[in-house]
């Protein structure tokens, strides 16, 4: 697994397009949000944290993971890896480990900067749980999306619904709260995770009440994994 992860890391740093998508775009977008925060008084810090996290995870992790898997399948690299002694779980883990690690580092750095320039989160553990649950959910959705993605170019289309969807949901939940349409907001992908980030950052909600919000996110993980096991392909369609 680590041999595959090492080779993926090498490729990430050699492929300018992936590097730009994964590092510069989320970082620049995050800097823009921070710029706004300084200039808009009363901006909900929890909401900003939620949107920032989803921006990085959706753009940095989700789209890159889908593009990577589609690309590796298209050039038969997945088949090549399956010619070795490594099992499928380790192949996928190796392929996705670098981008996942980079994303977690990015989120950690950005949220740390946010906590330094504004206020720190009220419930750090809850925030960590929310970030990890979101990362796992987006990885599951990436696997499922990769199953219906024929090529890296095709990924630009197939990733759009979930990319736009989770960003919209996180913004909607973050900035408007969950007092209205609470059920809808919580069951949409990313909704409960965004609420969890808001609660973790702003505080004021009982720990146990917030922890329940992990359930819908984990349910999406299950849905995504079930979908992925049905639609994920290791070789190009012939």
């Amino acid at each position: 697994m680590f041999a595959i992860a090492q080779s993926e890391l090498i490729q990430v740093f050699r492929n300018r397009l992936v590097l730009v998508t994964m590092l510069i775009v989320p970082a620049a977008s995050s800097a823009f949000y921070m710029y706004l925060h300084d200039r808009i008084p009363g901006l909900d810090l929890g909401a900003v944290a939620a949107v920032l996290m989803f921006l990085v995870v959706a753009m940095g992790l989700y789209t890159t993971a889908v593009t990577t898997l589609a690309s590796r399948r298209q050039n038969l690299f997945l088949k090549r890896l399956r010619s070795t002694a490594v099992d499928d779980t380790r192949i996928l883990s190796g392929l996705l480990l670098p981008v996942t690690a980079i994303t977690i580092v990015q989120v950690a750095v950005i949220l740390t900067v946010l906590s330094v320039v504004a206020d720190p989160p009220a419930e750090l553990l809850l925030l960590v749980a929310a970030v990890l649950a979101t990362v796992i959910m987006m990885l599951g959705l990436a696997l499922a999306t990769a199953g219906v993605t024929n090529s890296p170019e095709h990924a630009q289309v197939t990733t759009l619904p979930i990319l736009v969807g989770v960003l919209a949901v996180s913004g909607w939940v973050g900035f408007s709260g969950t007092e209205e349409f609470s059920l809808v907001k919580r069951i949409l992908p990313g909704g409960s995770a965004a609420e969890l980030v808001v609660n973790a950052w702003n505080g004021g909600v009982a720990f146990a009440d917030s922890l329940v919000l992990l359930a819908p996110t984990l349910a999406w993980v299950v849905v995504a994994v079930v979908l992925a096991t049905r639609v994920f392909r290791w070789e190009p369609r012939r």
């Binding site: 080779s7 490729q11 050039n75 038969l76 088949k79 090549r80 890896l81 010619s83 002694a85």
Partner: peptide
């Protein structure tokens, strides 16, 4: 296994490719 079509990652070097697949064969 020598596949009918190559299936290598284009961004890895020749030596890196052999080393990677070799390590995975155990």
């Amino acid at each position: 296994i020598m596949l009918q079509e190559s299936g290598f990652s284009p961004d890895l070097t020749v030596a890196e490719s052999v080393r990677l697949i070799g390590r995975l064969t155990q």
